[in-house]
Design a protein around this nucleic acid. Structure first.
Lengths: 150, 150
DNA sequence: TAGTATCACTTGCATTATACAAGCGAAAAA
DNA sequence: TTTTTCGCTTGTATAATGCAAGTGATACTA
């Protein structure tokens, strides 16, 4: 039954895909940052801080660092405003869109007070592929999909 | 900017669907339990304990309690063996299958050492709906989709 | 019927992660 | 030159998790 082989670090070589994913975004905050990048057009530290869930700045810093290390986001200085840093989704991060979509669909179905837009949910049900294409395009141009506030 | 209104508990009424979902399964363990229920045909406490990620029994107990409270799983005594308890996915829990599928697809794509079966990933790409139908049926009969070990 | 095993937990304690408030250094604006 | 803005870091309190052991209910065994 997959006994721990030799040297015995924990978590070595399980390779279950669910476990792999959870190691990257299995916490309360990471997917919210990705949501902000993907749907809200945010890309500055202070913008994530302002999201209504109120992530603590040290936790945000840790998450951004980890996401960059894992290759889901890139980090560079804004050439137009050298004191700002720009965070952006990489292809690998962008590729979480289908996952986010399904999460949103599920919550939209089971949260009676969901803020998920009705037309979004309807289209997810009837035209998943088209919706995904549009959202991918929007995310690449950082067009917020949802109004100014989250 | 959605200032805290009156009494000021945190987290009240944000209703973002991503946030809603994370409140339920935004941690390191919950989705592994759901994976075991959905793909491994597990339904007893000791079976979850034996999964290779080695969840602590107190954490497992807490997660099962929460999942039941949230209506994702049901709990009842095994009529054939009164000392055992049976946990099963409800419709609401089963409905996380598409989310899990996308998570697995993502990890399968980005983890070079993934244990996600190739035919599973291929079919997820070419015949998502059919795969989903089959997996839903299998999960309802608690047929493990993956060999004896996880 | 007494003793043992199984199973689903609980309890206590150490370690780690997160929350919250404050501060800091570099860049830019005044 | 001073003040602001911005992206963090630091310190400390609290909460979550990890680990080992124990408990009570059922059931199996001699």
């Amino acid at each position: 039954m997959a006994k721990r082989t030799g040297g015995g670090k924990r978590n070595d070589r399980l390779n279950c895909p669910v476990h792999f994913a959870l190691e990257i975004f299995g916490d309360r905050w990471t997917l919210l940052v990705i949501r902000d990048l993907m749907f809200m057009g945010k890309r500055h530290f202070h913008e994530f801080i302002e999201s209504p869930e109120r992530i603590a700045s040290n936790v945000l810093a840790a998450r951004l660092k980890k996401l960059e290390r894992q290759g889901l986001i890139s980090r560079h200085r804004d050439p137009d405003n050298r004191k700002q840093v720009i965070y952006e989704l990489t292809e690998k991060g962008l590729d979480l869109l289908p996952t986010l979509l399904e999460v949103i669909r599920w919550s939209g179905k089971y949260d009676p007070d969901t803020a998920a837009p009705r037309n979004f949910l309807d289209r997810a049900a009837t035209d998943r592929d088209g919706l995904m294409r549009d959202l991918t395009a929007a995310a690449k141009q950082r067009k917020p999909v949802v109004g100014g506030r989250s």
